[in-house]
Design a binder for these strands. Structure first.
Lengths: 230, 230
DNA sequence: ACCTGAACACCGTTCAAGT
DNA sequence: ACCTGAACACCGTTCAAGT
């Protein structure tokens, strides 16, 4: 049972420096909070100026704590990551390996559906991110346990790999984006329909041989590293 | 057998004006060509300045022919749209209704995989676009014939609707984007793996009841119109 | 009628000046 | 140590001036 990591202790160490001053710590918190709500509502293209204004600080302060807009975005994703880790733990604690796998994918999709920033962020960059590299490896191992168990139980097609899950989640993200539950009106849960189709697609019953084999974790991170270094 | 529409006769009528002057027509063509290659390689975030430079014209000329960057992008998508129409015609001409449907989805995915602009463009905006509204309706009717036939033949799950196809294509786009065949290195066709999973997901064999019903065409366009009008 | 490029309003990011 | 906001380099778009 791996518990969600604590990302900001009271001392908040960057690289390897001392704790932040009290006011700095509060400002950092405010920026992070403002960014979370703004990114969740407006997505990646929200302006840092608006976030700074909403946080009641100058833009310089924002960039002091988060050197780049992308860093700030990554920081806002942490709570979603923790939710996913919890979901995986819950899944591994269940006997029903299919229900567990479906639960993980559902939780991921729910986060994407309610947080436009998270939706925009899913993609190769998340694997390219050096700051996430280690934790990604840990998560991948958990996912591998989940998928292996489901395969052993015969509840998923036997050519399914843990490395497929990020891509399937990305696919679901594409559908969710098009479902357009971005803002106003009745926020639809149409994405559940396409999650259902994808889930049926990884079941063993109607499985047809796939034309391409799954990527290895090395290929996954290698591809992304080269993509981010262009 | 509906043949792909001709989008630019020698007379090129905008709104309802006269033919373009000879030099203007050539400039328009150059811009469109430059935009096609640049968007295909770099995606939406390519700059209009670079396109204008590559076309050998001033930015003002570019905006004279295409009032907005988005209009220019839409214009570059036309050849892909025509390809899809051809694919649907081919599919309807075949006896094998499953192969036909799979062929259409494959062609769409191939376009997305080789054209980053097309990949970035798929989404609700394509249905919101007033300029595409009519032709979208026509295409939807063709897709409906395709899906109905496949349902009647029992080769797809019987809760599949034609309106699902754009969303499934969007989903595939999400996976393709994450596959990251954007630039350098061996351009992977990993997306074919996830197309395979989605195809298995719409087969009748392992089909499980879906939690949400398909959107109607009206809902589809209505949602998008409200999204674009914000 | 059409083309051009300087000008404008915006964006993310930096940095000298303040406390 | 930290904060601030004017300044910078970029973007999409406009428009007065040219042919």
């Amino acid at each position: 049972m791996s518990s969600p990591a604590v990302h900001s202790g009271p001392g908040e160490h960057d690289h390897e420096s001392r704790p932040l001053r009290a006011d700095a710590r509060r400002n950092r918190e405010r920026v992070l909070e403002a960014a979370s709500t703004v990114f969740a509502e407006e997505g990646i293209e929200a302006s840092v100026a608006e976030i700074a204004r909403r946080a009641g600080v100058g833009v310089g302060t924002l960039f002091r704590h988060f050197p780049t807009k992308h860093d700030l975005l990554l920081a806002t994703l942490e709570v979603g990551f923790d939710e996913i880790v919890v979901a995986v733990d819950e899944a591994l604690a269940t006997d029903d390996s299919w229900a567990g796998l479906a639960h993980v994918l559902t939780v991921c999709a729910e986060i994407q559906a309610r947080d436009r920033g998270f939706l925009d962020a899913v993609g190769p960059e998340l694997f390219a991110e050096p700051s996430l590299q280690l934790r990604n490896a840990e998560r991948m191992e958990l996912l591998t346990r989940l998928v292996e168990r489901a395969r052993a139980d015969g509840v998923v097609r036997d050519d399914l790999r843990a490395e497929d899950l990020p891509f399937l989640l990305s696919a679901l993200g594409g559908a969710t984006r098009t479902c357009g539950n971005t803002q106003q009106a009745a926020p639809t849960d149409l994405w559940r329909r396409y999650l259902g189709i994808i889930l049926d697609g990884i079941r063993p019953s109607g499985a047809t041989p796939l034309p391409v084999s799954a990527p290895t974790l090395e290929q996954l991170t290698a591809r992304c590293r080269s993509a981010s270094g262009s």
